[in-house]
């Protein structure tokens, strides 16, 4: 593949921006949901792993 045969333009290039924004928002919402739904006890248990070896 040679990078000299460019497309003249990409049809609907805005889709790149929309996709990235969507991925970004969904990803963070998912992460935050998990983080705040997990019980404090379980997080405390995991955070002590380095200390019991």
């Amino acid at each position: 593949m040679k990078f000299i045969h460019y497309l003249e333009k990409i049809g609907g290039v805005d889709i790149f921006g929309i996709i990235s924004l969507t991925i970004f928002v969904l990803f963070f919402l998912g992460m935050l949901t998990w983080v705040f739904k997990t019980s404090k006890k379980q997080l405390n248990d995991i955070s002590r792993i380095p200390l019991d070896n």
Partner: peptide, 23 residues
């Protein structure tokens, strides 16, 4: 945590730290 002999301040924060940082 080993050297200070106490768990990390917030494990929740460490998860957010991880995913947000690499993303």
């Amino acid at each position: 945590p080993k050297a200070a002999n106490r768990p990390v301040y917030s494990y929740r924060l460490s998860i957010i730290h991880f995913w947000a940082l690499i993303f």
